[in-house]
């Protein structure tokens, strides 16, 4: 009985600590649903993507590539590269979750987003991971339910504005990406990574297999690392 109460308390706590993230994710859910319809996905596939993939940035990029008729291997390679950072989250949380049964670790891994990682990692680091699977589950279910709800809202919006595609779908994509990326560029290495990626993408326009995208990502990663290294060296020398 007390254990059941304790579980429920942890579940609720995980949900509550995730509320600010829910508010932040909501507009992206709406925009994703709207853009997915405008890019030619059916409402079933648009919602299906949120149900099955459940990864904001790669869903946006995926819809834009699908809309452009990109070949499947390129779409999948891009998804892989964009999501690779989640492996870091997975590694960071492993020490806390090592002894949990697989029936816990698989679903929690499926739901491991940037937001839930931030909330759960903070909690485990500061308060320990005792009973943490319930806390993590609470955060995961909140993020998942929220994402599905706002995707559905966006999909209905996309369907009630059938003119959106003609009204400048390309532009909507571009504006969304610009608005997502700009606030991330306040640190100099990130800005350098973005500039390098943008320049390479311009120069490599039209290369086959979207190689331009892969080269741009490579250039961005290398530039970010180099600038980070430079900043560190400068700090040490002063």
């Amino acid at each position: 009985m007390t254990q059941a109460l304790n579980r429920r308390a942890l579940l609720l706590e995980g949900t509550r600590d995730t509320v600010p993230m829910l508010v932040g994710a909501a507009p992206f859910g709406v925009i994703f649903g709207t853009l997915a319809i405008a890019a030619g996905l059916s409402s079933a596939t648009a919602i299906g993507m949120s149900v099955l993939v459940f990864a904001g940035s790669s869903q946006f990029i995926g819809v834009s590539l699908i809309g452009a008729g990109t070949a499947l291997p390129v779409l999948w390679l891009t998804t892989f590269v964009v999501n690779l950072r989640h492996a870091l989250y997975s590694a960071t949380l492993l020490p806390f979750a090592r002894d949990w049964p697989l029936r816990w670790r698989w679903p929690l891994a499926f739901w491991l987003t940037d937001e839930t990682f931030a909330v759960v990692e903070h909690r485990f680091r500061t308060k320990g991971a005792e009973g943490g699977q319930w806390y993590w589950l609470g955060s995961s279910l909140a993020m998942y339910g929220n994402w599905l709800l706002w995707t559905v809202v966006g999909v209905s919006l996309g369907q009630s504005l059938p003119g959106l595609a003609n009204l400048g779908l390309d532009f909507a994509m571009g504006a969304t990406f610009a608005a997502i990326v700009a606030p991330q560029l306040k640190r100099r290495p990130a800005l350098g990574a973005a500039v390098a990626a943008g320049v390479v993408a311009m120069l490599g326009r039209g290369l086959p297999y979207k190689l331009d995208l892969m080269l741009a990502v490579l250039a961005g990663g290398v530039s970010g690392l180099l600038l980070e290294q430079l900043a560190r060296r400068k700090e040490q020398s002063t």
Partner: peptide, 12 residues
Amino acid sequence: YVPPAVLSALVV
């Protein structure tokens, strides 16, 4: 740096 790089590569 991958997410900002991909987004910039699409936007620019």
